[in-house]
Write a protein that binds this DNA or RNA. Structure first.
Lengths: 193, 193
DNA sequence: ATATTTTTGGAACGTTCATTTCAATAAGAT
DNA sequence: ATCTTATTGAAATGAACGTTCCAAAAATAT
């Protein structure tokens, strides 16, 4: 059969993510996306149906990138508490790397769109659930190895860490000093040991 | 002299805050504000100059309300650590009370607009500074009274608590179960004692 | 080469946006 | 009563919004 998709979808999503991450959903216009991707308006609608759907694909790609990087980081961890530290360090690096100080795209999306768009709220709930599950697993193993104290259950510590991660990302929007950020991480970890 | 301002500015701001808090800045239209305030378009522009300026006034009023409530709560505190707990409890009540689960208007604004609008970024920096200063003062006193441990400096703990507060507000957008939320607060406090 | 299907370009769709304009109305001050 | 200023109503501004449309171009399969 004939002409197959010619543009690089991965690249297009990467460019779209940059805009959405910077401006959020509502402040991003279709023209912004046309400019950023280099695609024609029609091509965007042909391939992504709507602005919201393109945003959803960006969210998924953004999440997938973090899942990949988290998995990579977990392999380097000596033990569960070290794994948790490396996860925070991953975000710390992201904060410092981002020269526009945009925070986390998923956290920003939660703040902007949660409880307004069904698809988005569902994505956010799934993201939350899997993040907490990962953390709970790490805490559970950490307690088995007596590296993490037993003052709270894995479920409680997981929720605490999830909440701390979000706060960390929010803080990183206005505070980008490595020392200050690392101090937050250390204080969070101090709770567990 | 002649006709003095006739509408209730406090009420108008309260109504505008409801909309901005719910939808954020960009998703709120001038028509939304006309509908919510009951004011005429022209009257809004007469009194507030622009959408952005009205939003700034809303932010200030919203912040002032929290400063008032925080001051009230601090009077009830037996000691500095109790004061910190009461501040978290204040937010906990807000989270549970809000039937639309909108999170904190200032945190949302940070996520949506920080590092884009100068006036907003300035407001957010001031808000951050005063919040951290309050927390640092409480931690400092708590350490003097040996209610808070000396593992970290007041400045470090203040930043940690500030970050935790933001995370708490973000978490409260999707998790509104009192038990879970209270568990986060207790875990944060456990770090200090 | 021809048939088939996708991607393009670019204009156009109808709405909605924030903001302005201006004459009419209202009300305290003189 | 009259002057002065604020508020109102309603329409109009022009730009920008997300989305659609369609003919032209491109590219694979036959």
């Amino acid at each position: 059969m004939p002409k197959v998709e010619t543009f690089n979808k991965e690249f297009v999503l990467k460019q779209a993510i940059e805009v959405f991450h910077d401006k959020g959903y509502n402040a991003t216009s279709m023209q912004d996306l046309v400019d950023a991707t280099g695609l024609n308006r029609s091509s965007i609608y042909n391939s992504f149906d709507s602005k919201l759907n393109l945003f959803m694909e960006c969210l998924n790609a953004y999440q997938a990138k973090y899942i990949r990087e988290t998995s990579k980081v977990l392999l380097k961890a000596n033990n569960p508490i070290h794994a948790i530290e490396l996860i925070f360090d991953l975000y710390l690096k992201e904060i410092i790397k981002d020269k526009f100080d945009r925070g986390c795209m998923i956290t920003n999306c939660k703040s902007e769109m949660a409880n307004h768009e069904g698809l988005i709220t569902n994505f956010l709930n799934m993201n939350q659930q899997s993040t907490i599950a990962l953390l709970e697993d790490l805490v559970s193993k950490g307690q088995e190895e007596t590296l993490i104290n037993n003052k709270r259950t894995p479920s409680e510590y997981a929720l605490y860490l999830y909440s701390s991660l979000q706060g960390f990302r929010m803080t990183g929007i206005l505070i980008t000093d490595r020392t200050h950020l690392k101090s937050i991480v250390n204080t969070v970890l101090q709770t567990l040991i």
